[in-house]
């Protein structure tokens, strides 16, 4: 999982979502972010949840027109090929993919290696870990 969350320190401020939507969509709008922070109160504590791309590549496998690929580090969507069918959105196990106003699939691209969410997190909850190359020893 390229984006790692140390959730114990997450305060639920959602600055990561604001940074994400601003960087990619040019507006401040948490519902257009490529990750999502929610919280709820149960029994003895506040529970904070982080929903983000796990790089599982299911979207790539289910896309009927081959619009989704990856470079070994993040997902890439070819909006020229994307037909807005929503298959990727429906099959995303975390529910973090959405179709934008132009009916094009939006998937986290880790800001091409310099994730804004990591940069903006005030409590250093999020870190970006590059996937290890195949065959690399631990």
């Amino acid at each position: 999982m390229p984006l790692k969350f140390h959730l114990k320190d997450c305060t639920g401020c959602q600055l990561c979502q604001l940074a994400c939507s601003a960087a990619h969509e040019g507006e401040f709008n948490p519902v257009k972010a490529r990750l999502r922070i929610t919280h709820d109160y149960r029994e003895n504590n506040i529970y904070i949840h982080a929903t983000r791309c796990t790089f599982c590549k299911i979207c790539e496998n289910v896309c009927p027109v081959g619009a989704i690929s990856n470079n070994g580090k993040w997902m890439i969507v070819d909006h020229n090929k994307c037909i807005g069918c929503g298959t990727c959105e429906q099959n995303c196990p975390t529910g973090v993919i959405y179709l934008n106003d132009n009916k094009k699939s939006i998937i986290c691209d880790l800001c091409e290696g310099e994730p804004k969410c990591v940069e903006w997190c005030p409590k250093d909850v999020i870190s970006y870990v590059e996937p290890k190359k195949k065959g690399a020893k631990k």
Binding site: T11, G12, C13, Q14, L15, H39, P122
Partner: peptide, 13 residues
Amino acid sequence: RQNKKACFSCGIA
């Protein structure tokens, strides 16, 4: 104390 909690868009918490 169990946890810290922020308001929306607040970097302080």
